[in-house]
């Protein structure tokens, strides 16, 4: 199954978009986020992952399309769209969303195995968050350490759904799914007694797809020294802009 082509349909015809005043080509129907990336322009994103169908959950990728805020990871390119992306207004809004994700979960970066390689943290760095400006919610979130090789620490979950999409589309397993609504929404596993009851494997794409320290392979923590981790010296998105 090729996940890349799941959504939306691309006609393959070349169209032109204007993004922050720069004209870029796109294949008609390709998402704006991917068209921008092909042109070396980074649209900040969290629930999007290359190779997976877009989720449209997090709103970090919000751009203005002909003046209207829209998620770039789901919106199809068409001839003549005028887009705003790298503006103070949008980056401030994105930073505020990141800050809300920080205070809504229990993110203690100093004691987190994903620190330095975490996309949420890296977005904070890139978007100029020094510390969240909102009060911490100190919510109670469940940790699932039942599986011998994979850990699920919901304190760090941003409800991006990447694990669920990867499990379904790439691993063919459907280990994860959402449960509940609003502030009570959580990531659930497809077994009554936690991860150990599922057929997840540490090598699954679902585990690799998690942008944070929520899904982790056990006994892999802190193998890379500080200074050499993914985002220690290079901001997230640099690879897209290269």
């Amino acid at each position: 199954m090729s996940a890349q082509n799941d959504t939306p349909e691309t006609s393959g015809e070349t169209v032109k978009l204007l993004i922050d005043g720069v004209e870029i080509p796109a294949r008609e129907g390709q998402t704006i986020l991917e068209a921008a990336a092909d042109a070396g322009i980074y649209v900040p994103r969290l629930c999007y992952r290359e190779g997976l169908p877009p989720g449209g959950h997090c709103r970090i990728c919000t751009v203005k399309v002909n003046g209207r805020p829209t998620s770039a990871c789901t919106f199809p390119a068409s001839e003549g769209l005028v887009l705003e992306n790298n503006t103070d207004e949008l980056n401030t809004m994105r930073r505020q969303v990141v800050e809300m994700l920080f205070v809504e979960g229990n993110h203690v970066c100093p004691s987190c195995e994903a620190s330095g390689d975490c996309e949420l943290q890296a977005l904070g760095y890139r978007l100029g968050m020094i510390a969240p400006q909102y009060p911490y919610q100190n919510t109670t979130r469940e940790l699932d350490a039942s599986h011998p090789d994979v850990m699920l620490d919901r304190n760090r979950c941003v409800l991006c759904g990447r694990c669920a999409r990867a499990s379904r589309e790439l691993d063919g397993k459907s280990v994860f799914g959402f449960e509940g609504r609003g502030i009570g929404k959580r990531i659930a596993v497809n077994a009554s007694h936690g991860l150990a009851g599922t057929d997840i494997d540490a090598a699954d794409e679902a585990v690799a797809a998690c942008p944070t320290g929520c899904l982790l392979v056990k006994r892999q923590a802190n193998l890379i020294p500080v200074g050499k981790r993914t985002y220690d010296k290079t901001p997230i998105g640099t690879d897209v802009e290269a």
């Binding site: 229990n106 203690v108 970066c109 100093p110 510390a131 969240p132 100190n138 109670t140 304190n155």
Partner: peptide, 16 residues
């Protein structure tokens, strides 16, 4: 530092 800014590691107790 993190402790001054967010409560940091000692604030792990905040959820209980």
């Amino acid at each position: 530092g993190s402790c001054a800014i967010t409560g940091g590691v000692p604030a792990l107790r905040n959820t209980m």
